[in-house]
Amino acid sequence: MAQVTVITGAERRRMWTAEQKQALVMAACEPGASVAEVARRADLQPSQIYRWRREMSGSVSGFAAVTVTPEPQGRAEPCDVVVELGGAVVRIAAGTSPALISAVMRSLR
């Protein structure tokens, strides 16, 4: 006679709606949030949140869209580049060090 094992409990392959995925990705992107902690609370692997985030970004290359607009006349200080990202506006002067620019842009992410 063959042995049969019946496994009870929650089904491991769950279907997540787009809204649920987006909510989990946004929770993991909050300042000070831990992807591992968000994943643990949702009972999934952190790699799943990273995959959803990559799929939602719509960009494989990692570059952001840039729109160049003329600067209004009459500004007091010269500014070579203006970056608007996530509601923040960063004005970069010509002599700014690349390390400083990189640090500021990383902090805006």
Rank of each mutant, 00 (worst) to 15 (best):
I92D: 02
V60P: 10
E84V: 06
T67C: 10
C29L: 12
L108K: 09
D80N: 07
V4C: 02
P70G: 13
A65Q: 12
E37D: 07
G87A: 09
Q20K: 06
P70H: 04
G9C: 09
M26R: 14
A103G: 09
K21M: 09
A18M: 12
A42D: 12
M15H: 13
Q3T: 10
T8D: 01
M56V: 04
R53K: 07
E11Q: 14
S61N: 04
T17C: 10
A33V: 08
V6L: 14
K21V: 03
C79G: 14
C79N: 13
E77L: 01
E77M: 06
G32L: 08
A65T: 12
S34W: 03
S61T: 10
A94V: 00
A39T: 00
C29D: 14
A10T: 01
R12H: 12
L85A: 07
E84C: 01
Q45G: 00
A103L: 13
A88S: 11
P98C: 10
R106W: 08
A103R: 15
R109W: 04
I92M: 09
A23W: 01
Q73M: 12
V82K: 14
E37C: 04
M15L: 12
A64D: 04
A65H: 11
A36Y: 01
C79S: 15
T5D: 14
G32K: 06
S34N: 07
A99Y: 13
A23I: 00
E37S: 06
R51Q: 14
M105L: 15
E11S: 15
V38C: 02
V68M: 09
M26G: 03
Q20C: 06
A2Y: 01
A2W: 09
A36M: 06
T17M: 00
S97Y: 12
V89S: 10
E19G: 09
A33I: 10
V89E: 07
L100R: 15
G58L: 01
V66Q: 00
E77T: 06
A103W: 01
A42C: 12
A27Y: 11
I101E: 03
F63Y: 12
A64H: 11
R91C: 03
V6A: 14
T96R: 11
W16R: 09
K21I: 11
V66D: 07
K21S: 02
R75N: 12
G62Y: 03
S47P: 00
C79R: 15
S61K: 00
A33Q: 13
R13V: 01
A99P: 06
R106K: 15
A93P: 05
C29V: 05
L108S: 04
A23T: 05
T69L: 14
G62M: 07
S34H: 03
P78N: 00
V60Y: 05
R41D: 07
E11T: 14
G62H: 00
T69Q: 14
I92R: 09
R41W: 06
L108N: 13
S102C: 13
A99L: 15
F63A: 14
M105I: 13
Q73C: 11
Q22A: 02
S59W: 04
W52I: 05
E11K: 15
R51V: 05
I92K: 11
G86L: 08
A23P: 01
E37P: 05
G86W: 05
A88M: 10
D43Y: 09
G9V: 05
A39R: 10
V83R: 05
G62W: 03
E30L: 02
A99D: 13
M105K: 11
R41C: 02
